[in-house]
Design a binder for these strands. Structure first.
Lengths: 260, 260
DNA sequence: CATTTTTTCTCACTGAATGAGAATTCATAT
DNA sequence: ATATGAATTCTCATTCAGTGAGAAAAAATG
């Protein structure tokens, strides 16, 4: 029999709601958001208090405890992301026969958290795990940029210096903006030999909406593989993998806890 | 009747343990750390999984979910700290008749998260809420520095430029190091008119050990109040207040969950 | 002081939680 | 493949933790 509800679920639901309410929240508000009876909200809040997760900062105002926030602070998020997503990336690489990546944005650069080559002896390795690449010329980078809030993107576009690495590299901010807009619309981006004369790459975002973590995955290969002739052919595999990863890294959702 | 244990407490205890184990943790390890039966650990882990808090990254290796970590990321920790600690700081100011502060370290500078003046029309205000002061010459700063890991402190001492603000300002790195060591030993620090000719300040750390959050509180006043003649007189009040705040901001602790 | 909101308490009821151990699946090496 | 040990799920009878409506108290608020 499947457990649909219970003390733990309810408590976690409250914890989620308290964290989601950036500014502190009242029990009555919590009750209406979670669908729990007021009486239960108070009881559970008291438990979350003694456990050190939620505390009352003022009458009718509950906040997450600093010590709890610190607990989640010193965790290597990239390592977790890597461990959770690697199996899916591995399968993607094997299925497509290409090199698969998962990347995130770290101060304007793409960091490749995962890199799995289909063949072990992959000569042309422009990326390595933990390595970085400029965002403006990589497929993953364009997707990540396209997921950025408007302000952050504009800042990137205006502050950046776009050095050409190949003849194809987009070095014009306006053109880059267009490219990123396109990526957002169509849901994928290409690196059309913009990093190297011999590197073609297709990338899609993880999570249809800007996810809990802005990350993207890609497959890439050398010119000889001729992926560039039909980039769409890998999109299905990419998107399936992305969806799988998205569900693996998705956190708590604010939901109406069903009544018993 | 007081609730000593239960599904929620146990689940939170597991969540704490998983977060504390930076690198991922096995159910058996969790069982021994929390004192819960293996069977229960799995059951609770499954609930934490569906709730989006903890997930299996590999057999025998459970990690906090990125989406959960993100949830706690965009929270204004200073605002929470302010709201939780203000009442205590307020009482401190009123009891001592001095201006009371709570400060934290933010890239080498002290940020005053809370400032409460005993009298409303406090003319000499060298600090304001949200304002910053150099760490090396303020009492709060010295205490905060004394709570820093050895490496971070050394970095501060070697990288810093210690500009004199008064004749008393310590501008020599070695002397400052000594001053900070003393602060660590005796558990409090002074600003002996080092910021201004008319500002004396006594500070103690919040939390006996380096707490969940490195913060310190202080009382200060102008020269005319003559606190500088007996700084120890306010230590008891300071320490009581610090202890109160420490307990308010203390987060979850890894503990053996008592058997039923 | 009156009024409203927040918070705690009461209590009878019930099904959620429990944990030992069996059974099964899975990982890994042989 | 097959074996081996670990990880994980399942089963099940028992019982106590969880439940929520509403009363009541406490604490803000004006």
């Amino acid at each position: 029999m499947i457990q649909i509800d219970g003390a733990l679920q309810r408590g976690l639901s409250l914890l989620t709601a308290v964290c989601a309410a950036k500014t502190g929240i009242s029990p009555s508000e919590l009750a209406s958001r979670t669908g729990l009876p007021t009486s239960s909200v108070y009881r559970l809040l008291k438990q979350l208090d003694t456990a050190g997760f939620v505390r009352k900062s003022a009458p009718g105002c509950y906040v997450p405890v600093p010590g709890f926030l610190s607990l989640t602070q010193d965790i290597d998020r990239n390592a977790i992301l890597r461990d959770l997503a690697r199996p899916a990336i591995f399968r993607l690489a094997r299925k497509t026969g290409l090199t698969a990546h998962l990347g995130i944005l770290e101060n304007g650069m793409v960091t490749y958290v995962i890199r799995v080559a289909a063949r072990a002896n992959d000569s042309a390795s422009f990326t390595r795990e933990g390595g970085q690449l400029e965002a403006y010329c990589s497929a993953v980078g364009k997707v990540l940029l396209s997921n950025l809030p408007e302000d952050d993107l504009n800042e990137y576009l205006s502050d950046g210096e776009f050095v050409p690495l190949t003849d194809n590299t987009i070095t014009n901010a306006g053109q880059l903006q267009q490219e990123i807009a396109t990526a957002r619309t169509q849901g994928f981006a290409l690196d059309n030999f913009e990093v190297s004369e011999d590197l073609f790459c297709v990338s899609v975002p993880v999570g249809p909406q800007p996810a809990d973590q802005n990350c993207a995955i890609s497959v890439s290969s050398s010119r000889s593989a001729r992926i560039y002739e039909a980039p769409e052919s890998v999109l299905d595999d990419l998107r399936a993998t992305a969806a799988e990863i998205a569900s693996r890294i998705a956190g708590p959702v604010e939901v109406q806890t069903g009544n018993l």
